[in-house]
Design a protein around this nucleic acid. Structure first.
Lengths: 144, 144
DNA sequence: ATACAATCATATAAAATCACTAGGAAAGTA
DNA sequence: TACTTTCCTAGTGATTTTATATGATTGTAT
């Protein structure tokens, strides 16, 4: 029941971009340095995010990445799903085509459905903006 | 974010025992036949449940397993945890000793804490009895 | 006492997943 | 042209998953 590093790192990358959301492009190298993740591994993580249209990119010197939308328009769930696939707790909930031969008489399916629901409702109730606001609130504690 | 077969099978075994909860001992062979799981694999799954005191066992001819308590006294979460360990979505939430060096400044920890909470609250809100009642309700549909 | 039935323990292993590392190609900027 | 940065693909060691297999131990019934 663990979220893999890819999902967790994807969230950290997107949150880093959200906290440096000036409109300028942010080189991945800078994010890697801040987050303590190797550049090469981060490239693998941001690639699907780029293909999914979650970030905009530009190559070359002064290139980098930036968010494609407003931080409030990303739920954490949507980010995790790009790297993790469906967040369903069992494989039988993932597709419309139920491959499990026991599905019609399965006494546990309603339980798994319920778990699937609470997980997805929660991860989609939190946005990048929520996390940014929380973080800046924490930082201001030090100032005060 | 998947529950492993051990956790899922453990739930099916416990539910099978709950639906054959006459007080008599149920041979594992019978459960294996009903559930379509090999006896040898089931032995590995029920062993931790036995050690955790979730089921009572008796060896020998006419031996088998039965629930140690009333079905209403088992939450699904408690069963899953025996086989899966903590159901936390990240390792940093598992122990009291936080090993992650970033924990004090981690902007995502509150999100993971929240996810951890909704998952565990849900799995502990459903009992074996709930699943049994649901199943017998479904079966009675056929009768009616 | 003996045979039988079941739990209990341990070893092995294929397959999949995880968490990276590495090399280089392509594209854009100064 | 030199440099920087993204983009693409492949490989790799470690761990986990999902079992299978063999046999020992224990208890019940006849």
């Amino acid at each position: 029941m663990k979220v893999s590093t890819k999902g967790r790192y994807a969230l950290r990358i997107m949150l880093d971009l959200a906290m440096h959301n000036s409109g300028d492009l942010v080189p991945l190298k800078d994010i890697a340095k801040r987050q303590g993740i190797t550049l090469k591994y981060m490239e693998q993580i941001i690639s699907p995010l780029s293909k999914a249209g979650f970030v905009q990119s530009l190559r070359g010197s002064a290139g980098g990445y930036r968010l494609a939308r407003n931080p409030s328009e990303y739920t954490v769930g949507s980010i995790l799903r790009v790297l993790e696939g469906p967040l369903a707790p069992t494989a039988c909930l993932e597709t419309d085509v139920n491959e499990c031969p026991r599905v019609d008489s399965c006494p546990t399916i309603s339980f798994w459905n319920g778990l699937n629901k609470v997980i997805n409702e929660y991860v989609d109730s939190v946005t990048l903006e929520d996390l940014v606001n929380e973080e800046t609130a924490i930082q201001s504690d030090y100032v005060i």
